[in-house]
Nucleic acid binder design. Structure first.
Length: 696
DNA sequence: TCTTACCTAAACAATT
DNA sequence: TAATTGTTTAGGTAAG
């Protein structure tokens, strides 16, 4: 296990380009892309340390192997294991990398690797301690410089000695605790931890920290402050000129203080004020672009609240107060009422360095979320563009007629669409439109998969379900979005999609769950609906064959479900012929329809019919053309498909609820059109929703 | 306001 | 016996 850990460390660290990534991978289990690394005030950067560690580990292994090969200075491997110093550290940087970690893993035995690991850890510890020491010295020097500058004032100068002494003690304490922390980390095998990364570049932090990390940072900042306050209570307030700071005793710092290591290795508890100042500086360094004028209203309000505490804000519900507790990040103090909360807010979250830092961290949280939102929005737009832009591309009209596609072309020019005509999004800028506006569209309700959606798009003037599904197949498969089709149309499509145009109930179920993520839940509901539809609609014919009961589609019956007004009213037909039926279809779309029908009109069978009628039929031909064609084909013996009536088994013919099929229908023009539409290449795009009464 | 289509729920019986 | 399948009824919504 140890060997695995060691080799894993060796193997993975080269890919980590900075310490932040390493830390992230430890904190959340997954490394993130690290940003550019940079030296911290000319000090050893985490990257340098990392490389140094790797070099040393590799060199140690090399040296060890060399010793094993030559038999020099290595009486036994056990001795090596027990005395890691046998791997000369001084050799660490002398030779280039010649052995890959993988090779090392293959060459060395587990005990040897363990010995190497221990040696490497010892080296790292030493280096880290040196690093920390150097940092603290620098911090101390900086403090001294600043204090000397500030000490130009006579009053402060008198107290400078005390403050320096106190801070020196705090530095020592912090150093000790940091070393202890490093030792703990070493014992835990967290050898990649990089200390003192208070000056991590902005990019590194932003790329390495997810919002949760930032939230954790939040708590850490709060924790820092709590520690500071604890120190204050212990007489350690370095920010004041109190002279009692000399009474500080390191032992008074409670080790039980909640301890959240900062994601970047800062130890929140043991960070002295100077480091906190560096932390704040670090935070502000990568937020300086978003200075106070970029404060979110939330932050501004907080700021204002802390500064002025206006009563206007107190009377109403406060965004920082809810459920009886303070919502200030990292606080969660219980406040019985608003007054108490206000008091708490003014006392605990007044305008000071901590609040400022917390505000900035919160800004980072917000910024991070905004960045995430922007990314997700961009992804969504790309998805929508991918899913919907293609259908909007113009198609030659000898191609399968896709009303959605054609209509979408003219969407922008014509604002007033007849209700039910598709309004697919033509721009990624408007990816989401109401479902009612058409297929290829994800309604807000659909997106959330909530609530029933009435009047789905399969039956009236809607997009071909087949083309819609073909275009957005992957979308529906993966997104929990309710498909904008009726159960009946979906069932029919499933059945017609089957090789022999018949499915068992279970196969229909499977099709639903396979094709739509939405139907992978609430199975009882929609399965019941499927059964209900199968039973209710006459168009679904139960056929008992050798396999058991299967369901087929009686296309004639299915098309009888067409709205009777559309087929039965000569007035309406006339209106449609004269163009009224096209509503606000723009000229290009009508022209397209005309153009597409012109070829059909060349057919002798169509010569008896008016062009307008043909147009009308094309218009009425929603999305089920191909199935109708199939039906025609089967009836016309040019299709391998079998009509339900052709099954020589028990066929349970259902009586559809009273429909209008008996009324007088217009002279069928569609049959001819449909037959002419039955040309090579006419597939599913033409298949949906063709009124079949015209076939008669 | 009425009609129609659709969805959902549920009860019930038959079948597996 | 339980689960599945199939039928039927009822209530509700939305749109024409």
């Amino acid at each position: 296990m140890m060997v695995e850990s060691a080799t894993e460390t060796i193997r993975t660290t080269p890919s980590n380009q900075n310490g932040v990534s390493s830390l992230s991978s430890q904190s959340d289990g997954g490394g993130r892309e690290g940003g550019s690394n940079g030296d911290i005030n000319g000090e050893i950067s985490p990257l340098d340390l990392l490389h140094l560690q790797q070099q040393q580990a590799l060199q140690a292994a090399r040296q060890f192997i060399l010793q094993q090969a030559t038999g020099l200075n290595s009486p036994s491997s056990n001795e090596v294991k027990q005395s890691p110093v046998q791997v000369p550290v001084s050799m660490a940087m002398m030779t280039p990398q010649m052995i890959t970690p993988q090779q090392m893993q293959q060459i060395l035995s587990p005990p040897q690797l363990q010995a190497l690991l221990q040696q490497q850890q010892a080296l790292m510890l030493q280096q880290l301690q040196e690093y920390y020491k150097k940092q603290q010295e620098q911090l101390h020097l900086q403090l001294l410089t600043q204090q000397q500058q500030a000490g130009k004032q006579a009053k402060e100068q008198q107290q400078l000695g005390n403050k320096q002494l106190a801070f020196q003690q705090q530095l020592i304490q912090m150093q000790q605790l940091q070393q202890q922390h490093i030792l703990n980390l070493q014992r835990q095998g967290l050898v990649n931890l990089q200390p003192g990364q208070g000056a991590v570049p902005i990019q590194s932090l932003q790329q390495a920290m997810c919002p949760t990390d930032l939230q954790q940072l939040w708590k850490d900042v709060a924790c820092v402050q709590s520690t500071e306050e604890a120190m204050k209570h212990e007489g350690l307030d370095l920010t004041t000129n109190s002279s009692n700071t000399t009474s500080y005793s390191a032992s008074k710092v409670s080790p039980q203080i909640p301890h959240h290591p900062l994601p970047n290795g800062l130890n929140s508890v043991h960070t002295p004020k100077r480091d906190r100042a560096r932390l704040f500086e670090w935070i502000s360094s990568f937020t300086k672009e978003s200075s106070d004028e970029h404060l979110t209203p939330y932050s501004k309000g907080t700021h204002l609240q802390s500064t002025h505490s206006t009563h206007e804000e107190h009377t109403a519900s406060h965004p920082l107060y809810g459920h009886g507790e303070c919502k200030w990040p990292g606080c969660e103090a219980l406040c019985e009422d608003m007054g108490q909360f206000i008091k708490h807010l003014n006392s605990e979250h007044a305008l000071d360095d901590r609040s400022t830092a917390q505000c900035r961290v919160q800004m980072q949280v917000v910024q991070q979320l905004e960045i995430q939102l922007a990314k997700e929005s961009e992804r969504l737009q790309a998805m929508m563009t991918h899913l919907h832009m293609r259908p909007s591309e113009p198609k030659p009209f000898n191609q399968p007629l896709n009303l959605a596609s054609s209509v979408s072309l003219s969407k922008r020019e014509s604002e007033g669409f007849p209700d039910g005509l598709p309004h697919p999004p033509t721009s990624a800028a408007t990816p989401i439109t109401p479902m009612r506006q058409g297929p290829s569209v994800i309604s807000s309700s659909s997106l959330h998969g909530v609530g029933p959606i009435r009047r789905r798009n399969s039956d009236k003037f809607c997009t071909p379900i087949a083309s819609e599904l073909a275009q957005n197949c992957e979308f529906y498969k993966n997104a929990d979005v309710r498909p904008p089709f009726t159960y009946a149309s979906l069932i029919r499509h499933a059945i017609l999609e089957a090789p022999d145009r018949q499915l068992t109930l279970n196969e229909i179920y499977n099709w639903f769950t396979r094709m739509f993520a939405y139907f992978r839940r609430n199975t009882a509901t929609w399965k019941n609906a499927v059964r209900h539809n199968l039973s209710l609609h006459k168009c679904f014919v139960r056929v008992e064959n050798v396999k058991g009961a299967v369901w087929t589609v009686d296309e004639v019956e299915y098309q009888k479900r067409r709205p009777p007004k559309m087929t039965g009213s000569p007035t309406l037909v006339k209106n449609m012929i004269t163009g009224l039926g096209f509503g606000s279809l723009n000229a290009s779309y009508q022209a397209a329809l005309v153009e597409s029908s012109l070829g059909l009109l060349n057919s002798p069978t169509l010569m008896n019919n008016s062009t307008g009628a043909s147009l009308n039929m094309l218009h009425v031909c929603h999305d089920d053309v191909s199935s109708t064609v199939e039906q025609v084909n089967s009836n016309g013996s040019c299709s391998p498909g079998l009509s339900p009536q052709q099954y020589g088994h028990h066929v349970h013919v259902k009586e559809e609820p009273a429909e209008m099929e008996e009324d007088s229908r217009p002279v069928s023009l569609m049959a001819t059109v449909t037959q002419n539409l039955c040309m090579p290449g006419d597939e599913r795009d033409m298949d949906e929703e063709l009124p079949t009464e015209e076939l008669e």
